[in-house]
Structures are given as C-alpha cells and as structure tokens.
C-alpha cells in the first residue's frame, strides 16, 4: 500500500514542476523567489489559461527572462508587472485590475448577492404581515343574517 502511494506521488510530482528551465533560474534565491511570485500573476499570451511559470511557449520563456532581468535591474515586483502590463495590457495579468473597464466584473457578484438577499428579505417580511381584515358592510351583514335565519327555520322543519 505504502509503495503504491509513493509510486503515485512520484508519478504526480513532474506535473507540479514549473516550465522554468535551469538556465533561466537566478543564482540569488531571494530574487528567484520574487521572480516566481511575479510570474504567477502573468498570463501566457499563447496558452491563455496558464501562468508564464507553467507554460512552455516561447513567448512565456521570453517573459520569464524579462521579469528576471527587470528584477535584477532593481525593479520592485509591482514595477516588473507594470512593465509587462504596459506592453501586453491588462489582459496579461491573471488578476484583473480594478478600473472603469472591470467595474462589472468586480462589482457584479456582491451586487447580485445583495439583490438576492434584498428580494429574499422583502418576501419574508411580506409573508409575515397578516392581511388586514375587512369588516362586512351593511348589506352583507343583512344577507348573512337572512341566511342564518333561513337555516334556523329549515332546521325547525
């Protein structure tokens, strides 16, 4: 059982590794860690749903190298991201920025939740309210009286 588990883990491990090639890795582990963090936020423009760290596309490799170059040149993580964003647009960021174009994207989920809660609350309150009873008017009162009297007479028969 344990052997099987180890085998499974060993088989799965290669998938977890990044596409970062050995010659790209920076000698300074701190800078490399920062480069990895920046790379995680960058979309590969060829394979769209991968970050550049896990993509084997040529452009992704170029971007990885560029990120490292910027970081070695003294850029902060945000500056390195902004540098690439200026060339490839907001689309290259895996986490979309909050701006006029993305208001709907960011605000729609909480807005929908609020609307749903509001509608639910209104429905619940509406149900709790007991409907006001309307009294009978004079003619109805009279009709009821007559009906009862007729019933009584009928019973006597």
């Amino acid at each position: 059982m344990l052997r099987l588990l180890i085998l499974l883990v060993a088989l799965v491990l290669p998938f977890a590794s990044a596409a970062v090639e050995p010659d790209e890795i920076l000698s300074d582990p701190v800078l490399e860690a920062r480069a990895r963090e920046v790379s995680k936020g960058l979309r590969c423009v060829v394979c769209l749903n991968q970050d550049i760290d896990s993509s084997n596309a040529g452009v992704a490799r170029d971007l990885r190298l560029l990120v490292r170059e910027r970081i070695v040149a003294g850029d902060s993580n945000d500056e390195a991201l902004t540098f690439i964003q200026a060339r490839y647009g907001d689309y290259v960021l895996l986490k979309p920025p909050y701006n006029a174009k993305t208001y709907v994207l960011w605000l729609a989920p909480p807005a929908m939740l609020l609307i749903a809660l509001g509608v639910g609350l209104a429905t619940l309150l509406g149900r709790r309210k007991t409907p006001k009873l309307r009294g009978l008017n004079v003619t109805e009162e009279h009709e009821v009286k007559q009906f009862i009297e007729r019933q009584k007479k009928g019973d006597n028969k």
Binding site: G58, V59, D62, L66, I84
Partner: peptide
Amino acid sequence: LSGRAGIEWGISG
C-alpha cells in the same frame, strides 16, 4: 534574435 522587440510590440506569435 532575442524576441525582445517582439515583446515591445506585444506580439503573442
């Protein structure tokens, strides 16, 4: 040769 100008132009391929 390096693809750097390509990045400046924002090309994906």
